[in-house]
Design a binder for these strands. Structure first.
Ligand SMILES: NC(=O)c1ccc[n+]([C@@H]2O[C@H](COP(=O)([O-])OP(=O)(O)OC[C@H]3O[C@@H](n4cnc5c(N)ncnc54)[C@H](O)[C@@H]3O)[C@@H](O)[C@H]2O)c1
Ligand SMILES: NC(=O)c1ccc[n+]([C@@H]2O[C@H](COP(=O)([O-])OP(=O)(O)OC[C@H]3O[C@@H](n4cnc5c(N)ncnc54)[C@H](O)[C@@H]3O)[C@@H](O)[C@H]2O)c1
Lengths: 208, 208
DNA sequence: CCTCTGCTGTTATTGCATTCACAGCAGGGC
DNA sequence: GCCCTGCTGTGAATGCAATAACAGCAGAGG
């Protein structure tokens, strides 16, 4: 079972997709589902779905397949999204404000708490109910929120110093929008969102 | 050489990262670089870098390594970003407007041309120099821009019909922000940007 | 001119993820 | 009660990507 070290990364990514489809099924009142059907809705093969789940245990039943509500809850527990997590946001520019207004995160159990910006013009401003703090206040403000994750939507300057400070404050995971390589402190996970790279990939693929 | 079908997907993704670092090196006036140094800056192993490049040909030189300017230009050509490409944007909500204002795309050779929205309130409005068209005008307006790629930053309703229309108009690649599975017409490449999934992945990983 | 260094391009090896295939079994039909 | 169906969970096989290892060579130094 969940041997924690032996879980393929891509399996983790698929768990999110399973969870979303299960949520939809639950909303439409469906109580149980076979791997065939679920896999089809998600867009993977039934074998892969069963394999993915089998890494964490046996949740299915030969007669009825998987219980939608139970499996949904179980995956939520596995991902750690069964309880709301508070995130810190660094950078209240165009992107930061867009993320603040996005409802989708709350629906999935992620709440953006404190917002920080280096620009003194922005500090003190309130947006979507959150006040923007100065970057210097990081050490005094962040502990009140006990964030284990942060979103980087700031400029590229001094990123390494920033991530070191965040790591010191107990932040163990970063969602990074800054198109730059981050040398993360050990134990800190970084997930890059590089839209230009995705466009370049599409450009390559669509030219045959 | 570029056998087109046999290029690992992840190699394509890394090409973007190589290109970005090469651009930085070029800006700082460095003319040539060894695989060791370049790989270090990018964050991959030298073996992987050389392997990736060797798929497309031999660009290095034992004595000086790789010529920065030449390799930068070559990768640009491989990715198809050596000339500006015009993209269509569907959805001028919070996210769409943020993307419109982002300068990073232009720097990489991607220009957002026409913008479409279903909301009649938005149609006709001008934002960041682009006028918003009605979704019904897609067939009449899009051909003028000859877009091969589009960005989906709209709501989830009627996505399949929309992608079918786009495909009919020659759009072969989609950057999709809508958290929903798209059944893309054959020949159309879809790249999903699922931020909630990334957060869930980080949540999983950071809980050991 | 010869040797020695250390880099590239490429082949061999390892490791990981996906797919295949089936044992085992719960329930339905008769 | 017994067979039959069709599902899950999983060991085995396959395919693909990353890593290691090295052949071959261009130039530096003497
Ligand atoms: N806007 C997009 O669509 C988009 C897309 C992809 C990537 N990005 C990246 O996301 C980041 C933010 O983009 P944006 O469009 O919001 O830019 P922006 O200029 O609108 O906002 C950046 C904000 O971050 C603040 N900031 C800069 N450096 C900081 C630091 N070291 N610490 C704290 N705050 C800092 C600035 O004061 C500003 O308020 C950039 O790195 C950009 O490359 C943006
Ligand atoms: N805002 C974010 O930070 C964020 C993050 C991740 C994903 N997303 C996704 O991106 C999409 C857009 O997000 P947003 O925050 O801009 O939402 P939004 O509500 O601010 O804007 C959506 C816009 O799309 C238009 N629209 C809706 N359906 C359409 C259709 N079928 N065709 C054309 N236009 C249509 C609406 O009129 C509106 O103008 C959503 O699907 C959202 O889930 C947003």
């Amino acid at each position: 079972m969940s041997d924690t070290t032996k879980v393929p990364l891509q399996t983790v990514e698929r768990l999110s997709r399973y969870r979303r489809v299960l949520a939809d099924l639950q909303d439409t009142g469906i109580e149980s589902v076979f791997s065939h059907r679920l896999a089809d809705l998600v867009g993977v093969t039934p074998a892969q779905l069963r394999r993915d789940l089998s890494i964490f245990g046996s949740f299915g039943n030969v007669a009825r397949g998987y219980d939608v509500a139970t499996l949904h809850r179980t995956i939520g527990r596995l991902l750690g999204t069964d309880q709301v997590q508070t995130l810190a946001l660094i950078g209240m520019g165009n992107l930061g404000r867009t993320l603040l207004m996005y409802r989708g995160f709350e629906e999935r159990g992620f709440h953006i708490g404190p917002v920080f910006d280096r620009d003194r013009e922005k500090v003190g401003k309130v947006f979507a109910g959150r006040r923007c703090y100065a970057l210097e206040e990081l050490e005094t403000v962040l502990p009140d929120f006990s964030c284990r994750m942060a979103i980087l939507a700031c400029g590229p300057g001094g990123l390494d110093a920033l991530t070191a400070r965040l790591a010191n404050l107990g932040v163990a995971a970063l969602l990074n929008f800054v198109p730059q390589r981050i040398s993360a402190p050990p134990g800190v996970f970084v997930e890059d969102v590089d839209l230009s790279a995705k466009l370049e990939k599409l450009s390559f693929l669509s030219r045959r």
